[in-house]
Design a protein around this nucleic acid. Structure first.
Lengths: 139, 139
DNA sequence: CGGCATCCGTTTTGATACTG
DNA sequence: CAGTATCAAAACGGATGCCG
C-alpha cells in the first residue's frame, strides 16, 4: 500500500504503470504512516487492551508487562496525537489518568483483527517455511 | 494482538482476566512476528508490487526507489525464509533472478489491504487530529 | 500515580565500493 | 544484473533517577 488513496491495489497498479512510484516513498503517505504505528511494539497491544473500556496508565503497564514508563508514555502520546485515544485527567490526590479509545481508535480494531486472524491461520506455514529454509542454509 | 491464538479479542480478554499476560510479551508470538514483518519498511511494499506477477531484483528497486541493495536483499531473504516469496534463478548471461509471491504471500494481500483501506478511509481524521494536537501543544 | 529528563545498548536502515 | 562487504547513521526501546 503506501499511498493507496483511491483504492488499495488499483492505485498501486496505476503507479507501477506510471513513470515513477507516486507517493510510494513519501514518508507522509497515509498507509506508510499507519504501518509505522502498527509496526511499533506497543500500539496494537494498547488498542486491544482498551478495546472494551478505559484504563489507567498503571493498569496498562500491568498488562503490558516489561515496558518502561517512558516508552508507554511515548506510545500513548503518539496515539493521542493521532486521535486514537483520549486522555482524561482526574484532579485527584493520587494523580489519575484514564486512557480511552476514540471512535477512530475503535475502528482500528477490525483491520488489526484481520492481521491477527491471518497470523493465527498461517503461523504454522511460516514456521515450517523458516525451518525448511534454515535447514537448507545450514548444511 | 500478539498472541491471539483462539480468536483475536476473546483470547486477549481471557488473558487480561488471568493472572499474567499470557504470550502477550512472548517475542515468538505469531501475531508479534507478523507485525514485525508488516512493520518493517519494505515488506508490505514488496508484497503489493508482486501481487500481480513476478519481478526481478532491479525492477523492485526501480519501483521502491531509494532502497540500498543490501536492504532489499535482506527484505527479500527474510520474506523467502518466511515462505512469502520464491526466488527463481535463471542461469543466463546477464544474471537474472525473479521473485514471485507464494500462495502464502498472496494470502497476505487481503489483510494488508484491510489496513490500507482503513488508512485510506481515516487518514483525514488522523491528520486533523495531529494538527489539532500540535496546535494545542505549541501555543 | 503519572511522567519527564537523561543516558545507553540494540536493531534497523542506509551510503558506498566492489565482485561473480 | 544481482548481489556482498564494510562502514556509518539513525530510529527505537529500555534503564535509571527525579518531580509535581
Amino acid at each position: 500500500m503506501v499511498t493507496i488513496a483511491p483504492g488499495p491495489l488499483e492505485r498501486l497498479r496505476a503507479q507501477r504503470t506510471g513513470t515513477s512510484q507516486g507517493d510510494l516513498f513519501d514518508p507522509g503517505c497515509p498507509t506508510r504512516l499507519v504501518l509505522d504505528r502498527i509496526g511499533d511494539k506497543w500500539t496494537v497491544l494498547v488498542v486491544l487492551l482498551l478495546s472494551d473500556g478505559p484504563m489507567r496508565f498503571t493498569q496498562l503497564r500491568g498488562h503490558l508487562g516489561p515496558v518502561a514508563p517512558k516508552v508507554l508514555t511515548q506510545t500513548l502520546r503518539r496515539m493521542e496525537r493521532d486521535g486514537l485515544v483520549n486522555r482524561h485527567i482526574f484532579a485527584e490526590v493520587p494523580p489519575r489518568v484514564d486512557y480511552a479509545l476514540t471512535g477512530l481508535g475503535h475502528s482500528l480494531i477490525q483491520p488489526i483483527a484481520a492481521i491477527g486472524d491471518w497470523a493465527e491461520a498461517h503461523i504454522d506455514q511460516i514456521t515450517t517455511a523458516q525451518a525448511a529454509y534454515d535447514t537448507t542454509r545450514t548444511r
